[in-house]
């Protein structure tokens, strides 16, 4: 449904939210998961994706 990345690197094809640092990234991912009723997954390369299962 969406991705949250620092400086928007490594992601395309979904709405991308850019964060300045890891703390902001985690906060944004939490808010997005609550709003979209999705689950946050860590891609392992500094990108969080929000997925509705």
């Amino acid at each position: 449904m969406a991705a949250v990345a620092i400086d928007g690197k490594n992601v395309s094809g979904v709405p991308v939210f850019s964060a300045k640092n890891e703390e902001e990234q985690a906060n944004m991912a939490t808010i997005l998961s609550r709003v979209l009723e999705g689950v946050v997954h860590d891609m392992g390369n500094g990108v969080y994706i929000v997925v509705r299962h």
Partner: peptide, 9 residues
């Protein structure tokens, strides 16, 4: 089981 992205979770 699954990938849990957030540290707080």
């Amino acid at each position: 089981i699954m990938n849990v992205g957030l540290e707080r979770t």
